[in-house]
Design a protein around this nucleic acid. Sequence first.
RNA 1: GGGGGCGUGGCGGAACGGCAAACGCUAAAGGCUUAAAACCUUUUGUCCCCUCGGGGACUUGCAGGUUCGAAUCCUGCCGCCCCUACCA
Length: 829
Amino acid sequence: MSTDRYPFREIEAKWQGIWEETKQFQVHEDPKRPKFYCLEMFPYPSGRIHMGHVRVYAIGDLLARYKWMRGYNVLHPMGWDAFGLPAENAAIEHGVHPVIWTYENIDYMRSQLKRMGISYDWDREVATCDPSYYKWEQLIFIKMLERGLAYRKRSTVNWCPSCQTVLANEQVEDGRCWRCGSEVTPRDIDAWFFKITAYAEELLEWCDRLPGWPERVLTMQRNWIGKSEGAEFDLKVDGRPDLSIRVFTTRPDTVFGMTYAVLAPEHPLVDQIVRDGAERESVARFRAEVSRQSEIERTAADRPKRGLRLGAKVVNPFNNQPVPLFIADYVLMGYGTGAIMAVPGEDERDWEFAEQHGLPIIETVKRPDGWTGKAYTGDGVKINSGFLDGLPMTEAKRRATDWLVSRGLGTAKVNYRLRDWGISRQRYWGAPIPVLYCEKDGMVPEAEKNLPVALPRDVQLSGKGGSPLASVASFVNATCPKCGGPAKRETDTMDTFVESSWYFLRYCSPRYDTGMFEENAAAYWMPVDQYIGGIEHAVLHLLYARFYTKVLRDLGLTKIDEPFMALLSQGMVIKDGAKMSKSKGNVVSDDYVREKYGADTGRLFELFAAPPEKDLEWNDQGIEGASRFLNRVWRFVIAHLEEIKAAPDKVPSSLSEPGRAFRRTIHETIQRVTEDIEREFHFNTAIAAIMELVNALQTFESANAEGGPAASERAALIREAVETTLHLLGPFCPHVTEELWSQLGHRESVFKQRWPVADPAALQKTEVTVVVQVDGKVRGRLVVDVDAAEDRVRQLALGDDKVRPWVERRRVEKVVVVPNRLVNIVTRA
RNA sequence: GGGGGCGUGGCGGAACGGCAAACGCUAAAGGCUUAAAACCUUUUGUCCCCUCGGGGACUUGCAGGUUCGAAUCCUGCCGCCCCUACCA
C-alpha cells in the first residue's frame, strides 16, 4: 500500500466527529426556508455494506449536500427496514434470536454509514421492528378493516415452500419466489388482503402526473396495473334457460366471429353445466391434469393449449347461433369473468386453439394485406358482422356495446390486471396483524387502546409447520376486546412491504407518540422531493407506497396524493459480470475501500465511472484514478496554502489575457457542474468538469511563475480557482474538501457556504473560433469578434488561406453561417 | 408474443442536428530515483502521404432516407440488455 496518499483516515474521522458533535445535519421545520426532502430507499439490515450499496448513498448525499449549499432546509434521514425473513432464517440456522441478529446488523451498518460520512440527521433514525413503529400500521390496519380496504378471504395464493409463506403477486418472478428462487405453488388458504384494486384507476392516472419519474418505471407500473376496456355480456347455455355464462372481451366488435366459447377449468359453472356422469369424469381428469402443471410450465412460451369440449352449447346473442363450449387451460379464472367468447379470426390464442381443434374461423375484419393465414388483431373495416359491417374498429366496438346495453344483455366494462395485495405472512419476524377470533363475536379487531400488539420474544423457530406465533400460547390466548371473553389471536404477520409503505412519513416526526406522524411536520416535509433507489422496486415497493399514501389521505391523515415527486433509479454495481452481492461472493467491501483509499475516493469513483441510471462496472484501476485525482488536489492546495491565504479575496478588475482566459474556465466550470447536477443528474460529467478545472489550474500555476510581474493577480486567481474547486467538489467528497477549506483558514463548514454562481462578466468572450466547412468537411478555423456580422464572417471564410484551395475551380452554391459557431460553404463543380 | 432501452477507441464513458472520441483508465516512451513505488512530461481510433512544421482519407452495429450539415431525426435489417407474458 502506498504511503503517499493524503491522510484521509485522520481527516475523515475528524470531520465525522465535528458533524456529529455540532449536529450539522439536524433539521427542523422552518417555514421561512424552502424545504428539500432527499431520501434513499432504506436498507434491510442484512449484515455488511459493500460497494454495491454505497452507490445509492453516495448519490443521495451528493444531492442533499448540494441542496444545503443552495440554501434549502434539507431533510435527509436514514432507518432500517428491519422485519423480514433473513433474520428468521439466521435464527433457525445459527440459533440467534432475530431481535439480536437484526440490531447487531443495524449497529454495524450504522457505523459504516457514519464512516462513509453521509449527511444523515441521525436523530430521526427508525427501525421498523420497533413496536413504537409498527403500532401505527396496526392502527391503520384496523381503520382499513373498518372501511373494507383490508379483508380476509380464502383464496388460491402463491405459496413458497421454502420460505413457508404466502407471497404477493408482485413478489413472484417467473413463477419463483423473489427472495429465495424456489418454485411457487398454488395453495388454498385464508389470507389477508389490502384492496389495492380499489385504487387501480387512480394509481394509473397519476402515472401521467409524475414527470420526475423515469418513463420506464411508469411504464412498468402501467403495465402491471394493466387496464383494459371492453364489454361484458351473457351467453345463454343452449337448452338450459336457467344457466348463462358471463364473458369479458376487449373486442366486442368481433362478436360475429365467435365460433366457440371457453370456460376456465376451475370455473364454478362447469359443475352445473356438466350433468352426465361420464362427462363429469373426463372433466375431473382434465382438471387434475391442468392443476398438475407447475406455474412455470403453465407460463412457458408456445406451450400447446389444452382443452376439453363439453356437450353443451352456448348461444351468441348477436345472431342467436349456438356454438360449442370448451374448458381450456389458456383461460384463467383470475382474470375478467374466467370465461371468453373465442374469435379465432382476430385473436392469436383463439386461432391457435381453433386450428388444433378443427374449429371454424370467420373473418370479421377486412385484412388490409389480404388473407395471411393468421389471426389479424389490427384495425380495419368490419365484414361478415351484420349491423356492424362497414364500420372501423373503434366505432364498431361502441355500436356493439350500445347494442348490448340497450337490450339489457351486457355492459361496458373495465378490467385491471392488478390483484389485491396479499399481506399475510405465515412467519414470525413481522408486525402482528391486530385481530382476534372470538367464539361469540367472530373476527374482532384489537381495541386501539391495546395497541401495539407486540411480537412476543419467546418463540420456537423451526421454519416448518405454519405460523410460529401459533405455538406461543401466551400470545394466541387473549381476551376479546368486545365481550371480554376468551379469544385467539391472528397468528399471521404482515408483509414487510407494509412497513416500507410509510416510513418516509414517519421520518417527518419520528418520535411522535400520539399518532403515526405529526400533521404539521408531514405537511411541511412531504412529499419526498427526490427519491433514490434500485429499479428492482419498480412495481413492488413503489406501487405499494403510492397506494398506502392514498389510503392515508382518504383516512384524513395527510393531504398529499403521491409520496415521491421525483425518482432516480440507479443502476446496479457489477463485478465479474454479475450484480455485486453477498450470495454471489463478488463483493468489494466498503470497509476495505475506506481503509485503502478513504470514503471520499470510493464515493468519487462510483459517481464518476458511469451516469447514475446505468449499471456500473467495478474497476480496481478506476478507483486508483479517483484516488490520484484527490491526492493531486490535496498536494496543490497544501503547497499553495500561504500564497492563497495571503491573496486578495477579490480578483483584480482588470486582468491579463491569460488571467482572463483562466477566470473564464473557472466560471464555465461552475456553470457546467451546476447544470450537470440539476439537469439529468450527470454526475460523471460534473466530476469531469472539475477535473478539467484542476488541470487548467495546474497549467496556469506553472505558466505564471510566483513572484512574477503579476504576482497578486496570480495569487487571486489561484485562490478563486481553489475555493471554487472545493465548493464544487464538496458534495462529492465532503471530508477532504472540509479539511482543505479549514486549512485555508475558514471557520465555517464548506456546506454552510453558498454554492458558487458563475459571474456573467467572467463568462464574457470578445472573440470566438468559428469552424469553416466546405461541403460539410472542416477545412479551416477563423477567430472573429463575438457576434460579428454574418457578411463579414462569410467574406473571411471565403478568403481564408486554408479554405481557398477547396473552393477554387468550383462554384459556390451557397454559404450557411451559424453565428459564433460555424460556416459551411456548399459548392458545385 | 407484447412493451421499453441500448449499440461510439484496447476499456469506462463525452458530445442543444454544427470541430466525434471530453474526462478517466490501460499501454508505451522519457524524466526524477542507487533502485522501485509515488510523482512529472509526451504519445495512445484506423490507414496513407510527408520537406518531420504538418497534410490527407476513413471511422459512431449494417443498409437506406431527410438535411448545407446526422453518433444524434426517420425507415428497414442485425446484435445485446431489461421488463412482461395464454390478461381475452
